[in-house]
């Protein structure tokens, strides 16, 4: 696998959210607004990339019997640092993400990539894998959140998480035609299932095409 494929894998084929179904707890809970999605996504990209690099760097000295506690210490430390930074510099985001920031510690994408990739590959590949997978997670989260936000409120907006200043706001559906169900947990499951299904259909169609060409 070359470096580009490695990077691209996280987006569609191995998208952690819609193809691997990893880390769904926080995804379903916080995917109500675009702001949440971007904030959570960036937090996960940082934690995933840095933890991948550190775990890859210490993979040769880490005794394999205690590797899981070692990974957890590394990941928990990084998450706590990110949490403190968010609380200090992006208070509004901290308020809306709340408990789901510390829960990144037990997000299986991060431990999964540490175990499946970073512990077996060099630091550069682990860095690329971390960014790719993190972007894939963020990409999935943004699609889910934007869909839910538009269906539930009719508005798509994004505000600067550091200053709370509104950067853009568009109304896509008139207020009389919004479906508030989509902001509820049930709406999260419905939206998730539809997007995952559409992605699966696209993938099977694409693989059929490859076969026909052969």
């Amino acid at each position: 696998m070359n470096k580009l494929d490695n990077f691209k894998a996280g987006f569609i084929k191995e998208n952690p959210v819609f193809a691997l179904y990893l880390g769904l707890c926080s995804v379903l809970a916080i995917s109500t607004t675009l702001n949440n999605a971007v904030g959570m996504g960036v937090a996960v990209i940082i934690v995933l990339t840095v933890s991948n690099v550190i775990i890859s760097a210490i993979r040769k000295v880490t005794p394999s019997e205690i590797r899981i506690p070692v990974y957890i210490v590394v990941i928990a430390t990084l998450v706590k640092i990110v949490e403190m930074l968010i609380q200090a510099y992006a208070t509004d985001l901290y308020g809306t993400l709340g408990i789901f920031i510390p829960l990144i510690v037990v997000n299986c994408i991060i431990l999964g990539r540490a175990e499946a990739f970073a512990s077996k590959n060099n630091m550069l590949d682990s860095l690329i894998d971390g960014i790719g997978m993190g972007l894939g997670y963020t990409f999935g989260l943004i699609i889910l959140s934007a869909t839910r936000q538009i269906l539930a409120t009719g508005i798509l907006n994004f505000s600067n998480p550091f200053t709370s200043e509104m950067m853009f706001e568009v109304r896509l559906i008139p207020a009389d035609y919004v479906i508030s169900l989509f902001s509820t947990p049930a709406g999260a499951f419905l939206t998730f299932a539809m997007i995952a299904g559409a992605l699966e259909a696209y993938k099977s169609k694409a693989s059929k095409k490859v076969k026909e060409v052969k």
Partner: peptide, 12 residues
């Protein structure tokens, strides 16, 4: 193992 984990936790 103990020393390794203690060292890591100290750094953390």
């Amino acid at each position: 193992f103990t020393v390794f984990l203690a060292l890591l936790s100290g750094l953390a």
